[in-house]
Design a protein around this nucleic acid. Structure first.
Lengths: 135, 135
DNA sequence: ATTATTTAGTTGACATGTGAATTGTTTACT
DNA sequence: AGTAAACAATTCACATGTCAACTAAATAAT
């Protein structure tokens, strides 16, 4: 258990080290990647659903991204409760500069494990997660 | 990578669910366990070293534990820079009430994996961690 | 001894997270 | 239509985390 928590902590620390010199945090980076992945603007709740955290936190995250000019928010035209968020040119630029170093770190972490080991690890983690879920 | 982060998140969520009804958070619980484990009071930095986080955060954590009467802080007699933290009777009582449910959760997560798989998982995580460290 | 350097702990500023309560909107029901 | 229930976002209050700067105390260097 402790091993999982420690590894996760060091992982996010390593990703932070790559991303923060560019002025954003990992969570902000994740939001940007989600928005780039979805060609159309997404409502706040949808972003929240694709992240680990709850919606209230997302609002602040989006506030900060908007302040930096990396996203735009527009009140939904169909459903006026929604606020649609889209990535800006500047956001896309930033992401494109981060793609290479992030991919490099990703591969570096995974490369130390063989393909079989990778699969093994993913399987074990899934077992743990499903055990937690079924309690 | 994502699997590790998600599993860690759900793990800490599960432990929170056990511990928070008793009025403390997992981090506060961890501090209390560390203090119970060390028979003598520990300086702030030493507690910080045994936790994942940096010292500044520890100060606040200790503030809140002290406010709840679960720990006591005394200025060090030998080295007057240090602040020694000790767990109170009330802290020990709280821990003793949490021991059983926490152990139960711990075993439940681990039981789904055989002994061999447990060792395998620990090993794989260590490989990942050492890879990260050596970058 | 005196000064410079380290060390322990704290404070301040900011980014995340979470739960509870709120505001507008939309949908369901009668 | 008209009201109740559900939903999307947000605000508030609080607990974590991190970095940079600061205070006080202890050590090292000259």
């Amino acid at each position: 258990m402790v091993g999982i928590l420690k590894t996760a902590d060091e992982l996010s620390r390593a990703f932070s080290a790559v991303v923060e010199p560019h002025g954003i945090t990992i969570q902000q980076f994740n939001v940007l990647r989600i928005l780039r992945g979805a060609s159309d603007p997404l409502p706040t709740m949808e972003i929240g659903a694709r992240m680990i955290e709850k919606t209230p936190g997302i609002t602040g995250l989006l506030d900060r991204l908007q302040r930096k000019g990396l996203i735009v928010r527009v009140r939904g035209q169909g459903d006026r409760r929604q606020v649609l968020c889209g990535i800006t040119e500047r956001g896309l630029d930033l992401l494109s500069r981060l793609d290479a170093p992030v991919a490099e770190l990703d591969e570096a972490c995974v490369q130390a494990l063989g393909t079989a080991q990778r699969r093994e690890l993913v399987g074990l983690l899934e077992t743990v997660r499903s055990t937690i879920a079924s309690r």
